[in-house]
Amino acid sequence: MPKKIDAILTQYGRKQDELIPVLQGVQKEYGYISPDSVSMISRYLRISENQIFGVSSFYAQFRFTEPGRHSIKVCLGTACHVQGGATLLDMLERGLAVECGETTPDKRFDLERVACLGCCALSPVVQMDQDIYSRMTVNKLTELLKIYE
C-alpha cells in the first residue's frame, strides 16, 4: 500500500525548487504522476497544475500512466548503438508488439529507451528493472525475458 501523498509531500519544503524532487518522490511511490497527485502537489507547492504538468512533461523521467510490472530499458548510448542496441529495441518492439515508450496490454512490460546507462564498455546493455545485463544479443534477450513474469 503506497504512502499517502500528504506523507510524501511533507518531506519537502514548499518552494518551487522542490518541484522536481517532489515529483520524483511521488513517482517512486506510485510509479507515475496522476492528475490527483498533480492537484495535491499544486496546493502544496503553490504552483498551478498546468505549470507542474509543463515541467514534468519536459523531463523524460516522469510518466503519467500506470507502469507495467517490469521495466525494460534498452540502452541506446553511442557505444551500444554501434554494437547493435537498436536491433535489440527493434526485436523487443516486434516481440512485445508495443512501441518504445508503451506498456504491454497485459501490463507485464514497459519498454523504454535510455540515452546511456554508463556501462559503455560492456555494450550493448539492457536494464531489466534494476539489473543491468551486459553484452546482450537478440537471442540472449529472448531467453532473458522469460525470467520476468
Binding site: N50, Q51, S57, F58
Partner: peptide
C-alpha cells in the same frame, strides 16, 4: 500571474 498556459513536452 494566472498559470493556465504552459509549454508541454519538449
Amino acid at each position: 500571474l494566472n498559470g493556465t498556459l504552459s509549454f508541454k513536452q519538449r
